[in-house]
């Protein structure tokens, strides 16, 4: 704070502080507190608000646990978010290794630019592009048919397939960058030392590079998992009739039933249960929160 004062003077520092404070307090904290409070209240007609029925209870939360369908949707959302996270890791790890240890330094800005450009396009447009690409008579099937790789068009958008493809595409970079940072910080001599001692490439990865990259893998995985589980756009556009994402249920409570209270309870449940899940996974892989912060 003193640094800030010295550098920008009283007026600008005050402006910064007020704007940041406004953003955090009014746009983040207050709405959450509002929703949190309402998640414990029943959904009542306006006339009964403040009446004898308007008391705090866990009913909204229990609604979830009383609904096998919602539990199953939540279960599959977590499972498929984990699948998305794993696929993102499979794609990002070799790429991160290549970028940080193999590719020529002069090529890096070019490659990063190519990776970044898609991020400049809105997520809606990108998801919609996938909707077109994956369509039964879309370009992907047309090319595969044209190349003779498949004989009949594949129905891509069925089950969770479309959602997985869309989520992987949308969030793979959130895995790539932490991984890139982690692998880049590894002393190249260690990779060479392992090879010099006789290790084949896969063992060097298993014993030297992967353990070193663990914090990067963890932070990338947490990000991709949380973003996937909380994503609404991609599932809305790329889900099929037999795949529902938990966020869609929250949306239904909020906008179709107009029941913000239960909707809020579901939103907090998503946050809490995902946090529990992530903590459990981190414990299994022996990753500490402080490692991720590095």
């Amino acid at each position: 704070m003193k640094d800030l004062l010295n550098r920008y003077g009283l007026l600008l520092t005050t402006v910064f502080a007020v704007l940041t404070g406004f953003w955090i307090l009014v746009l983040v904290v207050l709405p959450n507190i509002y929703l949190f409070e309402h998640s414990f209240k029943p959904y009542l007609p306006v006339a009964e608000l403040g009446g004898p029925k308007d008391v705090y209870s866990l009913d909204n939360y229990l609604t979830f646990f009383r609904s096998p369908i919602h539990i199953s949707v939540f279960f599959w959302t977590v499972i498929y978010s984990a699948v998305v996270t794993f696929i993102c890791f499979l794609i990002a790890y070799p790429l991160a290794y290549y970028l940080s240890k193999v590719s020529a330094r002069a090529l890096l800005p070019m490659i990063f630019l190519l990776l970044f450009i898609p991020l400049w396009v809105s997520e809606v447009l990108r998801s919609f592009a996938w909707f077109i690409i994956l369509a039964l008579k879309g370009p992907l099937n047309a090319s595969l048919l044209g190349l003779g790789i498949i004989e009949d068009p594949v129905r891509w958008i069925t089950g969770f397939r479309g959602v997985i493809i869309g989520l992987v595409y949308t969030y793979v970079l959130f895995m790539l960058f932490p991984l890139y940072n982690a692998i880049q910080s590894l002393d190249t001599n260690q990779i060479e030392a392992a090879e010099d001692l006789g290790a084949p490439w896969w063992r060097t990865h298993w014993r030297v590079i992967l353990p070193h990259a663990k914090p990067g893998i963890a932070s990338g995985s947490v990000m991709v998992f949380m973003l996937s589980a909380g994503s609404i756009l991609v599932p809305t556009l790329l889900a099929s009739t037999n795949s529902r994402w938990f966020t869609e249920i929250i949306q239904q409570w909020m906008f179709e039933s107009q029941d913000w209270n239960t909707g809020s309870a579901y939103a907090f449940l998503l946050l809490i249960l995902c946090t529990v899940f992530v903590s459990a996974v981190m414990r299994v892989f022996r990753v500490k929160l402080s490692d991720i912060a590095k």
Binding site: N189, Q190, E192, A193, E195, D196, L197, G198, R207, H212
Partner: peptide
Amino acid sequence: RPNQRPTALIFQNLALFPLMPVWENIAFG
């Protein structure tokens, strides 16, 4: 390849594996 040669290199910065205990470092080969 380096992993096929009967040589062992000691690096200027030693390049010990910091995440392994001493004995695993030595026994890595």
